[in-house]
Each structure stands twice: as C-alpha cells, then as structure tokens.
Design a protein around this nucleic acid. Structure first.
Lengths: 147, 147
DNA sequence: TTGGGTGCAAAACATTTGCACTGTG
DNA sequence: CACAGTGCAAATGTTTTGCACCCAA
C-alpha cells in the first residue's frame, strides 16, 4: 500500500470520528491500516488472523464494532454472498463495482455501465429511489479441455 | 392457488423423489403445498408459522431438510439478502427474475433482459461459464411529498 | 475525571448434527 | 421389516450483548 493511500484513509477516518463525536482509539486505526494493507476481500476470521500477524491484539467484539463503524464511515463495504458468510472489502477509494464469485471461492470484480441504465429504468418504473445494489455472478472458469 | 398448479408441482416433486430414490413422506408434500399456497417470499420462521396455521405439525430440522430437498428439485429458490437471513421463494414455474428489497422489508420482482447482455460480455471477457446470478436492488419508495 | 470503547465471557440466533423412533417402500 | 426420514435436543458457528475496566478527550 502506498503511504499516500494509508494517509488518505486515515484522514477520512479522523474526519468521520471527529464529526460523529467518536474517539480516536488505536484499535480503529490499526484495523483500518491492516484492511488497506491487505487490500482484498475478507471475513471476520481472516481479519482476525491478519491482525494477529500484524501483532495487533484485538478482540472479536471490537472487530465487529470497528467494522460496523468503518462501514458507516464508508471505508468498508459489506457483501453477503450465497455461502451465508459476511464478506467485507475496503471501500475507498474504489468506485462502484460488482462481483463474480467462482466455484473455488475466488472473487473477481467488474464494472459494467449498463447496470446504471437498468437502475434508472427501475427507478422510473417502480417510482423508487435506489440506495444501492449488489450484482453477484456465480460462475466457474472454463475448462480449456471442455470449452 | 389453482388446483392445476398444486397438482403440477406435486407431480414434479413425485418425479424428483422417484428419480432420486427418496420417500414420499407427508411432510414433504405438506411443505410444498403450503409454500405454493402462499406464493410469496419467506424465511424458515415464516414457513414454520404457515405450517402451524395450516395445522401441519413439523419440526424445524425437517423444515430445513425439506427446503434443501425442494431446492435440489428446483421447486424452491434461495436468496441471501443483506439482512443476513436466508430467504426463499417458490421456484416453479416462475422464469428468471431479480429482486428489489425496499427499506420496509417488502420485496418486488423484476426482469430486465439487459442483464443477459451483461452476462454474455462477462463470460467472454473473463472466459468463464456463468452458473447463475443475483441482482439485488436496495431502495425506498419515493415520498410523494419529497420527490 | 468521565463516559465511550475495549476485552472477555455469556447470551442470542440461525442452522446442523446425533440418535432413538417411526412409517414408507 | 429395513432403513430413509422425522422429531427432539444438544452441538455448532457466527454475531450480539452485559459488564468491569481502561484510556482518549
């Protein structure tokens, strides 16, 4: 991770804590650092082990609290794939994207502008305001031998 | 529910049980009947209460077993919305559709052919075979007073 | 100094499993 | 009459909660 990005997200967290009247605890910055250091998708267990590896002691309960807070700050996004486990990913400064979940558990990302058109149609047709969306594509890699 | 639809899905279940060497237990048909009688989305708790209302005693464990079996039979579909709860819906004979989850918990359905185009692009671009997808739109009804 | 935040352990919750019993084939 | 399927209760795994203690403001 670039120094630059780490400072950027730390700054964003500081602003959020300041604005919301939350405290600047070391745990919160440690979690943020580790998440952006790693960069990829993770679940709570994975994050727990990342924290250990980074020699940052933290309890599970605090991890849940902190992740929730980082979601409110827009620094972490939550996904609910079909395996039933909550998955997270860094939420800044990435732009909106969607996910392909391969049968081996791997997760790819993509971004297709046509989704925006679909959303506009839906808003008009149902007279709703769309808050966000999740497009999950479940797929497998094509076997080169059986294409 | 039309007599016709009930017989249709019962027949489909019979075939599935026959083919798979499963037994034709009363519970399995009772669950199927109740699900198609109600027609809408549900979670396990809701289904439990539907069964009680229909005076069909059944245990939670059997409900989970039966739902799993009905999924294999293609008679029930599973969704994982962001609240973390497993949601189900009758899976026959509806055609592919996606979901709008309103902030009050209501679920709308829609079908947009442009999704198919997106999927074709993805298959080509990532060299994958798409098994299925889930497009979840989270929205709220527009307030007529604050449009 | 004070109450928001943390850590720990217990509770809550959905789901799964073990096992004796039952009814389908 | 064998054994797949059921019901019950206990186990599992994840997330939440209660509470004493601690530290950022």
């Amino acid at each position: 991770m670039s120094e630059n990005l780490r400072d950027q997200v730390r700054q964003k967290l500081e602003n959020f804590l300041e604005t919301g009247g939350h405290r600047r605890t070391p745990e919160r910055f440690a979690v943020l650092d580790v998440i952006y250091e790693q960069g990829g998708h993770f679940d709570i267990d994975t994050l727990m082990s990342w924290m250990s590896k980074a020699k940052r002691k933290i309890s599970r309960a605090t991890l849940y609290n902190t992740i929730e807070l980082l979601m409110e700050a827009g620094l972490v996004r939550k996904h609910q794939f079909e395996d039933g486990l909550s998955q997270f990913e860094p939420g800044f400064p990435a732009r909106q994207h969607d996910h392909i979940i391969l049968d081996n558990g791997e997760v790819l990302e993509f971004c297709d502008p046509r989704i925006l058109n679909i959303k506009r149609t839906l808003e008009e047709h149902f007279d709703i305001e769309i808050l966000h969306h999740a497009l999950h594509i479940y797929a497998r890699r094509k076997d080169p031998k059986n294409p």
